[in-house]
Write a protein that binds this DNA or RNA. Structure first.
Lengths: 188, 188
DNA sequence: AATCAATTGTTGCTTATTGAACAATTGTCT
DNA sequence: AGACAATTGTTCAATAAGCAACAATTGATT
């Protein structure tokens, strides 16, 4: 992509998140973002319809980065789900400022929905190759697991990462694994 | 000035200084600067003839900022020279990373010359309104003072700002004042 | 001495951003 | 209610930055 687009969008989104840290979403103006980002006001409209669209795009972007980071951890590893989990927490930590804002300021439901969608997609993909062995429907299991995982991710960020990545990813992995070992694919 | 020009030049000069901190001037390539600054290589040539010109422009720019900062301190103050002096040290401290590089890496003579020129201009302006009272030529005095001041500024930066701004500016001011009180304008 | 990769300036064309202006809308204050 | 400043979204022409390609030069390696 054209470098100018990269830089402009980064500046806008970054400034927007910065301001989100200081005041509520409704009080933020396009004007303010443009000035702080040192970007022509009109330029913002070339990329985003309005500030609601900007919020949407921010969430989309960060979730996409989260997925990408996890995928990089995934490739060529024998125990994918475990390392993917670690990758997720790593990314949350590295971009803590963003996720903290998105999970406490406005837009929480939007963000949670995206997160939910993403996790459930991964789980669906992960279980697509194995058959259901007991009488609980896969659908229900996935809903159950997704909610549980999203809840833990959210808790960890909102509570300012109270325990280390090692601990949180190990513990969460244990919870997933021991209760649903029949459900997840077995590696090695 | 067009925002794009500001940002581009800032990115180039900033990256250039960063690299100057890591390797000697001769080993630095335009390519490297462009990549690290995330700027199209051709764009650098729109602003600078080559890396020597870039070094020149950097020095010019930082000196101009130094002068501007001092002037802001100057305006509407009763004892200009003293506050101007403080302003100079403040600016050196705020942009320590730049000046440290310019005074230790290549380009030292270039930078010192510019500094020299700037200080002597200020002194000339400062004494233009008063007449010479003794038998030492104004010319010689200005050369003497300029060298002394530049030397102290340079020493302070190269030795990593070993004493506080308060102390250094007070001490330097004393040296200037007590020896050349007949020479400098008397305020109030 | 010769080869090879990297760097250098430069070019033509495309595209993104800028600044300025505009009317319309919003929110605040009296 | 009316006045007012601030914000909004949009337009336009001008211009800076982008990309890709090029030949020429440099520098290191064999």
């Amino acid at each position: 992509m054209d470098r100018r687009i990269q830089k402009t969008r980064y500046a806008i989104m970054n400034t927007f998140m910065e301001i989100m840290n200081e005041k509520i979403f409704e009080k933020i103006t396009i004007n303010e973002i443009a000035e702080r980002a040192n970007i022509n006001r009109g330029t913002i409209y070339l990329h985003y319809i309005d500030k609601y669209d900007l919020l949407d795009k921010c969430i989309e972007t960060y979730i996409a980065q989260l997925v990408q980071h996890c995928n990089e951890k995934h490739n060529g590893n024998e125990s994918p789900t475990n390392t993917v989990l670690r990758g997720a927490f790593e990314h949350l930590q590295d971009n803590f400022d963003y996720y903290k804002v998105l999970l406490t300021n406005e837009g929480v439901p939007l963000f949670r929905n995206q997160l939910y969608k993403m996790i459930s997609q991964i789980l669906n993909k992960e279980v697509s190759n194995i058959k259901n062995t007991n009488d609980i429907s896969t659908e229900v299991k996935i809903q159950f697991l997704t909610s549980a995982i999203v809840g833990v991710l959210e808790w960890w960020v909102v509570n300012l990462m109270p325990i280390s990545i090692d601990e949180i990813s190990k513990q969460l992995w244990s919870l997933i694994e021991c209760n649903y070992v029949d459900f997840l694919p077995v590696h090695k």
